[in-house]
Amino acid sequence: MIACVTFETAKVVEPALYYEVNKVHIIRYLKDPTSEGGKIYDSFCNRVTELLREESPLDVEVSIHNERVSDFSTMLRTVLSIIQCEMREEPGCELYVNISAGTPEYAAASAIASMMVDGVIPFSVGSKEYTVPTERIPEIYYVDGNPVGLTKATYDPRVLPSYNIDMPDEALIKGLRILNDRNEAGLPVTSGKMIVALKDAGLWYRDTEARSEDRKSNQRQTEAVYYQRDFITKWLRSGWIEKDERRNRYVITDEGRNFITTFFTD
């Protein structure tokens, strides 16, 4: 597992125990270990290490990476480097990336990095209980009777570097949604029925209209080939559908469902 440690312990330790990991990469930053702030950051990192070794039934290996956790590019480079190193040393290993603990820069970078490499599993974990009781929030997070929060003042904003991540093809996503909707409604999803539905939705871009009645049969065969090539093959290659042999039809996978609930929902 890869995680960032700043001021959290449970958000790092409990997922590691849940997934039964045997190695944890902790990313933290100590500019001056002798300063008061450095000692505080170090105490959290040390406590996480202690808990991992005390509470896990496994002999957990902990690797510490001292990198600037407030710098997005540094975090992206660091997380990618760890991922690639682990994949080389142990191909096919289960590698979890904790995006819930640490800085916002780490969270964004680790989420992007984990989606760049096949087989990496990013996850988030919510807070079930807090160390600060509700009745003490005004005492800790208010100033002069006004809600302020943990941060009292900020540095100037820093624009994150841009990395081009292609959007999925709109016709493929909307066509996939049609396939799923027809499956859920119990409607047939044969190539002929799907082609009609795709045409009705304006998603069919091939000019396959027959010019005469005696060419209707050839048109259907040609369209079936294009449907297989332009939709089914690409959905399968992306892992968005799978064949339900029992019902002899294609059905959407969990990954495919994630895509149709995220993109082009208008």
Rank of each mutant, 00 (worst) to 15 (best):
residue 198 L to H: 01
residue 94 E to C: 10
residue 247 R to N: 15
residue 231 F to C: 07
residue 79 V to E: 08
residue 145 G to L: 09
residue 195 I to E: 02
residue 213 E to N: 13
residue 130 Y to H: 11
residue 4 C to L: 09
residue 221 Q to N: 15
residue 88 R to K: 10
residue 32 D to N: 15
residue 243 K to V: 10
residue 219 Q to P: 06
residue 74 T to Y: 04
residue 111 A to E: 08
residue 147 P to F: 03
residue 217 S to V: 12
residue 242 E to Y: 05
residue 147 P to N: 03
residue 55 E to P: 00
residue 75 M to T: 04
residue 170 E to A: 04
residue 201 A to L: 00
residue 166 D to T: 14
residue 238 S to H: 14
residue 179 L to Y: 02
residue 172 L to W: 00
residue 142 Y to R: 02
residue 199 K to S: 01
residue 162 S to A: 12
residue 53 R to A: 08
residue 219 Q to A: 15
residue 257 R to G: 02
residue 181 D to F: 05
residue 42 D to I: 01
residue 231 F to S: 06
residue 3 A to N: 00
residue 199 K to M: 00
residue 265 T to F: 04
residue 220 R to W: 14
residue 26 I to D: 01
residue 171 A to H: 00
residue 49 T to V: 12
residue 61 E to Q: 14
residue 43 S to M: 13
residue 12 V to S: 07
residue 16 A to M: 08
residue 201 A to T: 01
residue 125 V to S: 13
residue 135 E to M: 02
residue 159 V to S: 02
residue 77 R to D: 11
residue 41 Y to K: 10
residue 219 Q to N: 08
residue 265 T to Q: 09
residue 37 G to W: 14
residue 66 N to K: 09
residue 17 L to W: 03
residue 202 G to T: 13
residue 82 I to A: 03
residue 114 S to E: 00
residue 36 E to C: 02
residue 24 V to R: 04
residue 208 T to A: 04
residue 238 S to N: 15
residue 177 R to M: 05
residue 114 S to G: 00
residue 41 Y to R: 09
residue 160 L to G: 02
residue 41 Y to N: 12
residue 167 M to H: 06
residue 9 T to G: 03
residue 93 C to H: 04
residue 230 D to M: 09
residue 5 V to T: 11
residue 148 V to M: 13
residue 145 G to I: 10
residue 197 A to I: 06
residue 93 C to M: 14
residue 9 T to Q: 08
residue 92 G to V: 11
residue 8 E to R: 05
residue 80 L to R: 13
residue 120 V to K: 01
residue 149 G to I: 07
residue 85 C to K: 07
residue 251 V to Q: 13
residue 211 R to K: 14
residue 225 V to P: 00
residue 245 E to T: 12
residue 102 G to S: 08
residue 26 I to N: 02
residue 121 I to K: 15
residue 193 K to S: 14
residue 82 I to R: 02
residue 224 A to C: 06
residue 5 V to H: 02
residue 77 R to K: 15
residue 214 D to K: 13
residue 209 E to I: 12
residue 195 I to H: 01
residue 85 C to T: 14
residue 170 E to M: 09
residue 228 Q to E: 05
residue 114 S to L: 00
residue 172 L to I: 01
residue 144 D to L: 09
residue 4 C to E: 12
residue 80 L to K: 10
residue 37 G to F: 10
residue 74 T to F: 10
residue 266 D to S: 08
residue 240 W to V: 12
residue 97 V to K: 03
residue 34 T to H: 09
residue 167 M to L: 14
residue 254 D to G: 04
residue 142 Y to M: 02
residue 81 S to M: 00
residue 221 Q to F: 13
residue 157 P to A: 05
residue 19 Y to C: 01
residue 109 A to I: 06
residue 85 C to N: 09
residue 186 G to R: 05
residue 77 R to A: 14
residue 144 D to S: 14
residue 86 E to H: 07
residue 81 S to R: 03
residue 251 V to W: 10
residue 176 L to Q: 00
residue 161 P to H: 03
residue 153 A to K: 08
